[in-house]
Design a protein around this nucleic acid. Sequence first.
DNA 1: AGCGGGCTTGAATCTAAGC
DNA 2: AGCTTAGATTCAAGCCCGC
Lengths: 371, 371
Amino acid sequence: MDHSRDLPLDQVLLGDCVEMMQMLPSGSIDCVFADPPYNLQLRGELRRPDDSLVDGVDDEWDKFGDFDAYDRFTRAWLGEARRLLAKDGTIWVIGSYHNIFRIGAILQDLGFWILNDVIWRKSNPMPNFRGRRFTNAHETMIWAARSPQSRYRFNYQAMKSLNDDIQMRSDWLLPLCTGGERLRNDHGLKLHPTQKPEALLHRVLLASTLPDDVILDPFLGTGTTAAVARRLRRFFIGIERHPAYAEAAIGRVRRERPVPLESVATSPGRRDAPRIAFGSLVERGLIAAGTVLTDRNRRVQAVVTPDGSLNAGALRGSIHQVGAGLTNAPSCNGWTFWHFERDGALVALDVLRAAALAELSPPPGPRPLPG
Amino acid sequence: MDHSRDLPLDQVLLGDCVEMMQMLPSGSIDCVFADPPYNLQLRGELRRPDDSLVDGVDDEWDKFGDFDAYDRFTRAWLGEARRLLAKDGTIWVIGSYHNIFRIGAILQDLGFWILNDVIWRKSNPMPNFRGRRFTNAHETMIWAARSPQSRYRFNYQAMKSLNDDIQMRSDWLLPLCTGGERLRNDHGLKLHPTQKPEALLHRVLLASTLPDDVILDPFLGTGTTAAVARRLRRFFIGIERHPAYAEAAIGRVRRERPVPLESVATSPGRRDAPRIAFGSLVERGLIAAGTVLTDRNRRVQAVVTPDGSLNAGALRGSIHQVGAGLTNAPSCNGWTFWHFERDGALVALDVLRAAALAELSPPPGPRPLPG
DNA sequence: AGCGGGCTTGAATCTAAGC
DNA sequence: AGCTTAGATTCAAGCCCGC
């Protein structure tokens, strides 16, 4: 389904996020990132958290009226977001203890399927000045698929590479947005109270989207999502009701340069590689029929047949089936299980497959930039 | 208000938690710690890459029909818990993304006032075997006061002492409950699928309660809350519906020895607080509160307190300060000065510190991002 | 919708073997 | 005997995908 003609790609829409979302076609968005306002002031205006004011604001919270209004607001925008998401799309929502529990419960009620809650641990949080609580040193992100049936995107290998080749955990240590990255007005004051660090969005988009995916941010603010999306060669659609924020976001995106095309292809997982049939290796002479295969410890063995199946006594079948059968395992990856002898050493079939793959698709050289 | 005559102090009540709570008088509890069923909704078996089977939580007590049934259950027990709490009481609830958002929203709906969400970062979580999500490496605790008007207890200085004299943050790094602390049946299998580490309860109770406070755990399980409460000279009331769990908890509490009376008083809020990480050793059970320390020649001695300071007659302070005070020295390295007896021999604190460091080696920090 | 190819694991504790 | 090391085991898990 290609919606690109109907979509305002790489644009910032000025206005209310629910009204704007209602104008977009269903199923057209691959990923939503949302940093919703967490508090409703008395006049119905939405405010973002400003840590230095939290204590003062808390005391005036009318819990029943405000919770109810906040829930209605949350159901409205999350419902629209779900309509816009493609079948396999995912959503990220960030919040603090003031609002994240209500958001999580409503996500579940609407049929979203939570995949992880991810903790952004701030390396430089604001201290608790009054010494009455623990230092509030984190925010919570919820990552959810549109439904339990969604075959969502997760770039496992890219995340692992980002983390010293160890699985990425659900707690991320990142500094607050400060210094040159922080947008400021003419008086040197921060333009937006809760500007998110680009590193956070970098990791979010790298984990759960592909180049050319369409990412929607219904509360764009000063455009961190848009800037990082453009940098990583994803499309974005931003919605922001505050003209000054929207203007800042537009300028920020305009200054952003996409990274070279060949560098956005993040570490491909083995799942993404084209499938090679073992039989094709026999066919192409990379391994001869009659070759004796063994496991790593030479405990079991089997013989390669001309059609690419294996023979082991009464057992006959694929490299996976025979491996599983001989080890009484429910399943077996024959590519890594079976070995053959070359120059006196045992070599895994996977080595042959890698060679075959390289032959099929040589690594791409640098490609020209469009436009 | 003294309810102690009406209360089943230091007892384990066998039965449904809501029914049991209904029998207790209003306003009689200082602190609730609750580890309710998580409503995990596992969809099938999970195998490791080596085909071994993961032993998940498939117990009947974790089965609920749908979110609505779980919400009704949650409102019932949280409502009773709120009735039992004293005006200034607080509650801790621990959960994962499967249930914690519903619990947080219901806490707010019932009028509780959230003070912090605290992240238990697991130093040794189970990996994500299929590589389809981030490693689920944390659980979330919500700490809330009975109402916005509660003048709740927070032992700021004790928490600071536990954390190298820096404000305690909202993310806590602690290992899972394993090894000798884990209760096992005759076959060596874990007695309870979700036994919490004592270090977690140590920090919770030290942060938010005083000696002689009454702590209620409506889902006692195998009694971690009860054991740590007794050790720290708090009273507990435990409720557990599963007879085998309750029995294990009772035996466990019976084996528990309260620390010496003079050592449970937490650090007074002094400006020159001890500069130590020694407190974390106490918290994690590497050295017990109440342990008598001596110098190498057994000339002086002091007692370990739960927050990691030492008591020696009128002297009280860090391991360094008390060592210096007792020897009339201007300064003293408490790590090498103080010893305790193990297997008849004197062992320096420094030995413990090395062990603790190895155990708590944190995951790698953020690396510079590519591009 | 079922079948089967084939992709997927970190930290800590404990035991047994080796030196 | 005492120390080191390799291997086995375990931990609240809503853990695959395409033909």
